[in-house]
Every structure is written in C-alpha cells, then in structure tokens.
C-alpha cells in the first residue's frame, strides 16, 4: 500500500508540468510550421497529436489523400524500424514525380510537410530538427 501511494504521488507531480510543456511545444511547432509554409515550394503541412490536429494545405481537395499517405508513412516507418533494425525514426522523406513529403515525430506530435519536387527539403528538415 505504501509503495502504491508513492507511485501515485510521483505521477501526480510529473503530470502537470508535462502537460504544460506539450502545449508549449505544440504552439512552437505550429509557429514553426506556419513559417515553413511560407518557404518557396511548400504546399502545406499536417500537425497531429493525440488531442488535436492542424492542417494547412494550399489545395484543400487533397487534404484526405495527403492525410492518408502521411498516416501510412508513419505506420510503415514504425514497421520498417522493427523489421530492418534501423532504430528510432528520425524522419521519413518520400518523393514522387510531382511532390515530396517530410514526416517526423517530435514528442507525440506527428508532422508532415508537403512540398513541390524542387523545394529545399534540407532547409525544412534542419528547421524542424532544431525544435
């Protein structure tokens, strides 16, 4: 009984600051993504966590297609990480003939940035990893 009580206390102490940090991080992420959205060749982004989502796409008709592809990328990334023993995923870059996507996770936040084929993905990746 004593042990259980201790655990509960520890959790309750930690829970509040974490919640505050997540909110701050999510806000920072959104600010950064809004900035990235202005970069040349960037089509838009999706930011998702367990409680909220922010989507900004220049072509709203593609929101569902991009959201499905983005979600599949994260799922496949996790599976590949296990199957091929490449460790925790830092980022995923997918390129098609017309566009490319950068996907990465920052804490619980799943980020996907969509851009034209010739956009500077390195610059965007550096910006996102700096968070």
């Amino acid at each position: 009984m004593v042990g259980k009580k201790k655990t509960t206390q520890e959790l309750s102490i930690e829970t509040e600051p974490v919640a505050v940090e997540e909110t701050d991080l999510a806000r920072d992420l959104r600010t950064t993504l809004e900035e990235i959205a202005k970069y040349e060749g960037v089509i838009g982004y999706i930011l998702r966590n367990s409680t909220s989502a922010a989507i900004d796409l220049k072509d709203p008709t593609k929101i569902i297609d991009y959201a499905i592809l983005s979600s599949s990328l994260f799922d496949a990334g996790e599976e590949m990480s296990t199957l091929l023993n490449i460790g925790d995923i830092k980022n995923i870059i997918i390129e098609g003939k017309d566009a490319k996507i950068i996907s990465l996770t920052v804490d619980e936040n799943r980020i996907s940035v969509f851009m034209e084929k010739n956009a500077n993905s390195e610059k965007i990746l550096r910006k996102l990893h700096s968070l």
Partner: peptide, 25 residues
C-alpha cells in the same frame, strides 16, 4: 509495408524514392 505506401502515392505523382532515417541506420 512498402506496398501500403506505394498504393497511396498517386497524389504525389507515384513513388520515386522513400528514405527512412533511423537512429541506427
């Protein structure tokens, strides 16, 4: 796993390349 992605890549003009960067490889 890759097929699952490939079949959804029509929206970006079909797949040319995927890179997954991990902490170990």
């Amino acid at each position: 796993a890759l097929d699952n992605i490939i079949e959804k890549t029509q929206t970006i003009g079909d797949l040319e390349k995927i890179t997954i960067e991990g902490s170990k490889g």
